[in-house]
Design a protein around this nucleic acid. Structure first.
Lengths: 222, 222
DNA sequence: CGACAGACATTGCGGCTGCATTGCGCGGCG
DNA sequence: CGCCGCGCAATGCAGCCGCAATGTCTGTCG
């Protein structure tokens, strides 16, 4: 892990660098806002520790700059200004955490770990078939980025077809997915839904094949 | 915004609920770990406030459970156990932040905002859709610089629609965001709010689309 | 090889469900 | 005491969906 420490007081900086180094954290040290801005441009840092009182201004003013350059880069403010008001100000300027001096090194490390843990992206299960992209969690279908306007029954049918793309889906399975168990169906309305689905998928590069006597099968257009 | 408060002390819970409600945050209250676990399963919460001393165990033990159920759900621990050691323990158990009692309500709100910014932090806590600009931290909506005059319910509805712009928001999710669990709704008043929202957004270049049988969808006007 | 039957495709229609809109009255807050 | 937000209900409306009629295709049997 490599962090950028923005701090003008040399004793403080040295002590922090030593403490963090003992935990195998690489520390780059910047004494001014200007140097810090320059340093962060390299994009090698995993987090920023930011002092407030700096020779060329309040550290908080750096936060919007960092956010623009390196969106998502965790920022922890370290400051002797520790009143609730000061903390609120720091957090509302966009900091991820605010730690008042003096603090324990262990707590700093823990807060660093906490802030670094941030999940990259909650796994959204997406299925791609041809130009068709189906988001299983959101229950939404796109064709080349354009959202498809599907009705509820069409969505339910497409979902199960997509989940088993390339394999034949028995007609009975489709009926159970689209209607309930209870909801009896006494016509060919499932076929009707498939028909309308096909039209809406005409530009999606996929085909819904009918497997006579068995069911349907979704696959990329040949 | 809707949060889950896990706290057994009723005075504390009532005070917090009142304070947060004043900032238009919907609070669901759980007195025990068991109830909390059950409540979080609904997946409607944006964050969790977690006490440590609870009738059925240490609140920290809930964190792994929440992480498994709802990865990415921000968790802030609130505890009278405020020593650095305690904080480190809390953070290393997976909490996103640790606030020692007593704390100022303003700081809690600021830390909530900080922790909520995270997922959407790519870019800013400002969402633009069409001419509509929604400030998630300030909770304010502008159309071409002109601030929109929205009521509380309208704001809550618009917030969740904006947070998930371009994706269908289930009707149930909207109801839970705008009203609480307990607040039963026995009419189409949600529809009424949507209707009035639409009127106020008429010049915003966005549309609130109704997805029949599913919910609503906000997107730029075609 | 032709004819028929069964299965799927497509499309129009009507009913019904669920959404849109508006007005009213209550209750809370100033 | 007046205002405003909100829940509620009534009315109007649109679109989804079930249904059936008709067309197409395929596989089978005489």
């Amino acid at each position: 892990m490599r962090i950028l420490l923005v701090e003008d007081e040399m004793n403080m900086a040295a002590a922090l660098t030593a403490a963090l180094s003992r935990h195998d954290i690489v520390v780059d040290h910047a004494r001014t806002l200007e140097i810090a801005e320059e340093a962060c441009r390299s994009g090698v840092h995993d987090a920023v520790l930011l002092d407030r009182k700096l020779p060329d201004g309040d550290g908080l003013s750096l936060i919007p700059v960092l956010r623009r350059e390196q969106a998502g880069l965790p920022i922890i403010v370290l400051s002797a200004l520790g009143s609730p008001d000061h903390r609120v100000a720091g957090l509302d300027h966009g900091a991820d955490d605010y730690l008042a001096k003096p603090f324990s090194t262990d707590e700093l490390l823990a807060r660093l770990r906490a802030v670094m843990r941030r999940p990259a992206q909650i796994g959204e299960s997406m299925v791609n078939v041809g130009q068709l992209r189906f988001n299983l969690t959101e229950r939404q279908a796109d064709v080349a980025g354009e959202p498809l306007d599907l009705t509820r029954r069409e969505l339910l049918a497409l979902e199960i077809l997509v989940r088993r793309a390339g394999r034949t889906v028995p007609r009975s399975a489709l009926e159970e997915a689209v209607y309930g168990y209870d909801d009896e169906i006494a016509s060919n309305s499932l076929d009707a839904h498939i028909s309308r689905l096909r039209r809406k998928l005409s530009t999606a590069g996929v085909e819904i094949h009918a497997i006579r006597g068995l069911g349907y099968l979704l696959r990329t257009a040949s």
